[in-house]
Design a binder for these strands. Structure first.
Length: 104
DNA sequence: GAAATGACTTCAT
DNA sequence: TATGAAGCCATTT
């Protein structure tokens, strides 16, 4: 599925210390209504280790929650190592860490 | 082939 | 402003 490849490319372009939302990635790929598929693509994540799926969160800046590449705790830890700080709710400050794509 | 599920988003109450 | 329900699209059973 070309869409998946698009998603992987976008996610790989997320700079260290930044995060992006599914909807935003979906919009970047050209399919603003495919937020769920973005999550699905990352779940399939054939490029695990290459695609920083841990930098992808929902629109609230919250972690994926359920099963991930190694667990939500691991995802949180990795993001903290990236320089991202979580608030009391374990949510990321999108105002500070939301990735702003150059223009595509 | 059809129905149900799912790492989400958005409108409506 | 916060909580609830519906919508979307691809994958899976």
């Amino acid at each position: 599925m070309k869409f998946f490849e698009e998603v992987y490319e976008v996610v790989k372009r997320i700079p260290k210390g930044k995060v992006a939302t599914y909807g935003q990635i979906a919009a970047m790929t050209g399919y603003p209504r495919r937020a769920r598929m973005v999550g699905w693509a990352l779940h399939a994540n054939p490029y695990q280790g290459i695609v920083p799926c841990h930098r992808v969160v929902n629109r609230k800046g919250e972690l994926s929650g359920g099963f991930a590449f190694g667990g939500p705790e691991v995802q949180k830890m990795l993001l903290e190592k990236e320089g991202i700080i979580f608030n009391e709710d374990g949510i990321i400050n999108l105002e500070k860490y939301l990735w702003k794509p150059d223009k595509a």
